[in-house]
């Protein structure tokens, strides 16, 4: 119980810190690296929630595929010193901070009042739902159609990416 809390709060602090650093860094490569750290912490949090399959898939897909794509594009664009996009404090940023703070307060209000008397979750039950066996069974029976549609989505994304990144449209 106490160990669970220690793991959670360590991962939570690292993930919030890395998210903040990601948003504030000027160099996109460093921002991408902080985002990868954040993704690893999230995978750890998924493990503490007994979602083993999703944790592994998260590392494979996000840290392994999407972030490689991001870093690759950053390297490809070769954003030099003139591209650092020096963001100074501007009225726009203050408004952005105020708006997102309002959003956070709304979300916290909803969470506090909606989960006021939520019992602690059943770890044994959660352990069973997160297994590959359980997810696979559900995915290939009740969710077979969305699963197949996903393949069409990925095909469309591949074609779209190739077409958009091509040098000349002719």
């Amino acid at each position: 119980m106490i160990l669970e809390s220690i793991v959670f709060y360590t991962l939570a602090i690292i993930s919030i810190g890395s998210a903040l650093l990601m948003v504030t860094r000027r160099n996109p490569v460093i921002a991408a690296l902080y985002l990868i750290l954040n993704f690893f912490c999230l995978a750890g949090l998924y493990l503490t929630l007994q979602a083993q399959f999703i944790a592994v898939i998260h590392i494979l897909v996000y840290a392994g595929a999407i972030m490689v794509l991001f870093v690759f594009v950053i390297m490809l664009l070769n954003l030099g010193d003139k591209q650092t996009l020096n963001d100074a404090i501007s009225p726009k940023k203050v408004v952005a901070g105020g708006l997102s703070l309002a959003l956070l307060l709304e979300l916290l209000y909803i969470i506090v009042y909606a989960t006021k008397d939520l019992p602690a979750y059943d770890v044994k039950q959660a352990l069973e739902t997160g297994t590959v066996e359980h997810i696979g069974k559900e995915l290939f029976t009740n969710f077979l159609f969305p699963f197949e549609v996903t393949s069409i989505l990925l095909l469309a994304a591949i074609i779209g990416a190739v077409l958009l990144a091509k040098r000349k449209l002719d």
Partner: peptide
């Protein structure tokens, strides 16, 4: 431990993401 701490963490991270989308000018970030 219930799931409330996870929900708070998720709300805070969502807010940080919103700040990034509104305030930053670098398209990649």
């Amino acid at each position: 431990m219930g799931i409330q701490p996870y929900l708070y963490l998720s709300a805070i991270m969502f807010m940080i993401g919103v700040v990034g989308v509104i305030a930053r000018r670098n398209a990649i970030i």
